[in-house]
């Protein structure tokens, strides 16, 4: 059963990008609700993510951004509501379930192992073994192959400051580590990549690099969810912006339909979004 259609205003979407919205959303959430004791975490949230777009999720602290993302990626189990992947209803009991379904998450704390090299980090918990008895009997890792494919994955994202896949992650700068985490998500996320505050700890140049990687993922046809507090970054990278407020969705805007000031006003409740609000 496919999810009920959410109304979608494509007026503010550039002409050449409208085609991606004709298809079925790659990831859809309907009426997600979760309570933590007496505290309402999510109060019936709807969300559509299309392949080939960057959907930013913004909101004040406590608005439910992280909770929403955790429900989408299997870290939390929502109390009620439905999740659809490619129109099929799914339920994720653990983060691994979401990962196996093709949804990769880049956590705020990055989840890279400093002492291991870049290739090992990219393939951590997904190691590939050698062909033949060396792999099946002796369980030997295909180190060369993994390093080669890791190099290709990093190249594809246009990261030129990382050259040597045998370099330990601890010798990298913050931006390069972020790049490794994004590259891992990109290499294995076949459908959706979720990034939680990917630019929070980075300088201007490194942020630019990560934003470019995000656009690259989108252009490769993935659905990208970007959570950020940094409005200029959101307005630069996002195609649509989901505004989370008080556990619910206060509306979906685009960088061209509203400017940053209006976005922040809606986010803080100073202004209401008057459009055809979802029923």
């Amino acid at each position: 059963m496919s999810p009920a259609k959410l109304s979608l205003s494509v007026d503010a979407i550039p002409q050449e990008k409208r085609a991606i919205y004709d298809k079925e959303p790659i990831l859809a959430a309907r009426d997600l609700r979760i309570n933590f004791g007496r505290v309402v975490g999510l109060d019936g949230v709807n969300l559509d993510l299309y392949a080939g777009e960057v959907l930013a999720v913004i909101g004040d602290n406590g608005a439910g951004k992280s909770t929403l993302i955790k429900c989408l990626t299997g870290a939390y189990q929502h109390d009620s509501g439905q999740l659809y992947l490619n129109g099929q209803e799914v339920s994720f009991k653990r983060p691994q379930d979401a990962r196996e379904a093709g949804i990769e998450t880049v956590y705020q704390q990055l989840a890279v192992i400093p002492a291991l090299d870049i290739a090992s980090n990219l393939y951590l918990a997904r190691e590939e073994r050698r062909a033949g008895p060396l792999g099946s009997v002796l369980r030997m890792l295909d180190k060369k192959g993994m390093a080669k494919r890791a190099g290709a994955a990093v190249q594809e994202l246009g990261i030129q400051t990382i050259q040597n896949m045998g370099q330990a992650v601890e010798t990298l700068s913050g931006g390069q580590r972020q790049a490794v985490a994004v590259a891992r998500a990109a290499a294995f996320g076949s459908k959706v990549v979720v990034l939680d505050e990917p630019t929070a700890a980075l300088g201007v140049k490194e942020s630019g690099m990560v934003l470019n990687m995000i656009k690259q993922l989108r252009d490769n046809g993935l659905g990208v969810i970007l959570i950020s507090h940094n409005m200029p970054h959101v307005w630069e990278a996002a195609d649509r912006i989901h505004i989370q407020r008080l556990g619910g969705c206060a509306g979906v805007i685009t960088p061209t339909s509203h400017d940053m000031g209006e976005g922040v006003a809606i986010m803080t409740g100073a202004k209401k979004l008057v459009q055809d609000a979802p029923a």
Partner: peptide, 8 residues
């Protein structure tokens, strides 16, 4: 913790 989040 990072290892766990990576699926180890």
């Amino acid at each position: 913790e990072s290892a766990r989040l990576s699926g180890v």
